[in-house]
Structure formats: structure tokens, C-alpha cells
Nucleic acid binder design. Sequence first.
DNA 1: CGTTTCCTTGAGCGGTGTCAAGCCGTGTGG
DNA 2: CCACACGGCTTGACACCGCTCAAGGAAACG
Lengths: 207, 207
Amino acid sequence: MALAKSTKRHNAEAGKELVGDSRSVERFSNVLSGVVKLTKTLSDGRQQIVGLQFAPDFLGRPFQSESTLTAEAATKVELCSFPRHALERMMREQPNLEHRLLEQKLRELDQARDWMVALGRKTASEKIASFLLMIVRNIDPAAGPERRGAAFDLPLSRAEIADFLGLTIETVSRQITRLRGESVIRVENNRHVIVDDIGRLAARAGD
Amino acid sequence: MALAKSTKRHNAEAGKELVGDSRSVERFSNVLSGVVKLTKTLSDGRQQIVGLQFAPDFLGRPFQSESTLTAEAATKVELCSFPRHALERMMREQPNLEHRLLEQKLRELDQARDWMVALGRKTASEKIASFLLMIVRNIDPAAGPERRGAAFDLPLSRAEIADFLGLTIETVSRQITRLRGESVIRVENNRHVIVDDIGRLAARAGD
DNA sequence: CGTTTCCTTGAGCGGTGTCAAGCCGTGTGG
DNA sequence: CCACACGGCTTGACACCGCTCAAGGAAACG
């Protein structure tokens, strides 16, 4: 994904805010590695993660200020970032780019809608299973769907998983403990997860 | 919104399925009037409405089969419908169209994310208030934001509202009764809603 | 007038949130 | 090296919101 030479390469620590609400909308980025979380917050502090962006996703809301969305690095992140006018110039120069952008946004929309089903209709344990499945599928998309097992580090803390699934930390913890008790997953150091049989995990996702 | 002449004009009764899952993805439409609901269903029958399309929204998922989405008319609907190849030809002929499509999809994505907050983090009564507010703002977008009151027919049944908000029919009914008891809204014939002070309604939406 | 569909209302229960305590790994300062 | 504090996570006890099950009203339609 070659980008204009005027762009900057950028690194961010986990937890660092990348795009403030409605002011610094003037920059756009590509995620080169790591995971970026998009969150929305109600006035009383309740928070919801409304999207996770993995490499090589595009970051930013063209043509309009970003409602009230905050982008934060969830892990160490490498970005390729550039200002608004550069994006707009690039889009004029190669209409192909706008087409690719549209395709990505359509994918994001599909994902958002899958989530809405999870948020609105799935139980706590189905939500956890769905979340783990989604991480499996995004962390190394290289691996085909034929493999039976997987192992990975969770890119999110328990609190972030809770914000992602519309649950509390405690419920997340209990459901993970439950999956561990039923030997669907193994957990090491709180963050590393081993799934021996992805099928068994998928069976709990409720789809 | 002039469209190619080879397109067809189409009417649908409320409840009629417009786009089956993954087969009839080969047609696309513009909503001329009415409300179309997009739903997803889990294997055990749990359902979630993941989007409502008002005029003049575009309907359909270009470039890929529509995951597992069903589009149904929620009210009487007028559509301007045309086959996939027509859309693709039109997009080649005027790149402007692809741009407008992108802008709409970006709006839909913003809406989907607003919902995710409601689904994941709002209480039942906040969900109902948010839903009514959203209808007010979409039903007659002509009226500016300065007006204090509004009156409209709900485009959805209680069951559909429940599927939209991730609740049960009973909870929807009870919360509406509650809002009525607190004189935030008045209801006639189960479907017609009168809001005297939109501000009071907005105060219950929890944002 | 019966039937059907949609909606409301009540009673009771269960899943998830709340509050609180404690564990574990890590970092920090003595 | 130990003592301690701190953050992230787990676990338990309990409360409450929203779900389930059930009954009945209201409007539309035969």
C-alpha cells in the first residue's frame, strides 16, 4: 500500500489517544500493525467500543467531522498518517482509491451489524465466544479456515472486552473462567489464549 | 434523483420481503418513500434489526453478496429498483455516483455505531427514548431542530421495536406506558405518538 | 359474533450488574 | 533483598433489571 511521500510514519503506545473528538479529525491513517479501538462515551461515563481496526485498515472519517468517536491504540500500533488535504488530493488523482475506501467501509458496516446482533441478542457467554472467534479470525488472517486450533494474545484488557461486549468486567471474567472450566480454551498469564478446537468455540457463539 | 431509464418502479406491502438472503442480491434499489428494515437472525430464531432505511436511502450491498441480511418493508414502500449490472454501469459512467454511495455508507456506519452504544450500554427506557428521538429526526427531516414538539406514526410494531432495541415486546410496552405516565409522550391508537417537548424526551435518551 | 392479531399488565424468576474482598504479578523504594 | 503499593484480574454475596409465562383487553376482520 504505497502512499504519497508527504505522509508520516508514526508509532503509538497502547492506550494513547490517536484521534480526539471532533478537533483532530484533520488527519487520516492506515493501520500498519497493531489494533486500534474506536469508542463512544455517554455523558455519565458509560463507554462502548464500536469498532476494532486491524492492519491494514484505514482510519478516519472523510467528508465530515467524526461524530463523537475516539480512536485509541489498544496495543502497540504503527500508523501511516497524513493530513486531510493529502487524502483528498490522492482521491482526486486516483479514483481507484475512493473505490477501495468504499469497499473497506462496506466491510466495516457488515462487521458493525454482526456486532449489533451480538450486543442486542446474545447472552454473555455467547458474546465472549463470538469475541474470541473474531480475534482468532483477525489476528492471523493468513491461516486458512481449515486449521483446528489457534493461540494468540488478547489485544484487549478485561475492561476493554467488557466495553466491547456491553458487559461488566466481572461478567467477562466469569464467562472466561467458565469457558476455561469447560476446556474450550486455556489461558496463560491472563492474556494468552489457546483454543484447541475452534469448532467447539464456534458452537458457543450462537450464530 | 434521476436514475437510468431501464430501472423499474416497485411497490411493496408492509412486511413483504424485498431481498432474500444471498440469492436475490442481484438487485439494488432506492427507497422513494416508506421505511425498510434490515434484519439479521440467529439460528434459533432470535432476531435483531440492524438498520432502518428511510427515503432516499440506497438499498443493497455492491461488490459482494450480502452477508446474511434480510431487507423487509416495514411500512408501505416505494422503491426504484434495478439489476446489479445497471448499477455497475452507472457507477462507471458517473464516478460521482460512487462518491455519493460512499457518503451514504459512511452515514449508515455512523448510525450503526450510535446504535451499538444504545444496544450495549443504555437501559430499556433510554433505548425507547432514543428510538423515538431517532424516528422524530428521520420521519420529517424537513423540520429544523428548533421546533419543540412533534407528532408521527410509529413505522414499527412493538415486536419490531423490540427487535430493534434488543428487548422483548413486554419491556417495550412497559417502557412506553411509563413514558406516557410521565407525560413525556402521548399515544393514540397504539401507533400514533405525540411529543410535546422534544427536549424532555431527549433528556431520557442518556447521551 | 367469533377469531385473530396486537398490545398491555401482572407475577415470578434468572442473568447480569453492583459492591466488596482478595489474589497475583510487577514495579518501586528502602 | 524485602516491603510495599498498585493495577489487573478473580471470586463471592446480593440486588435488580429485564425476561418468561400467563391472562386479558382492544381493534380489525371474517
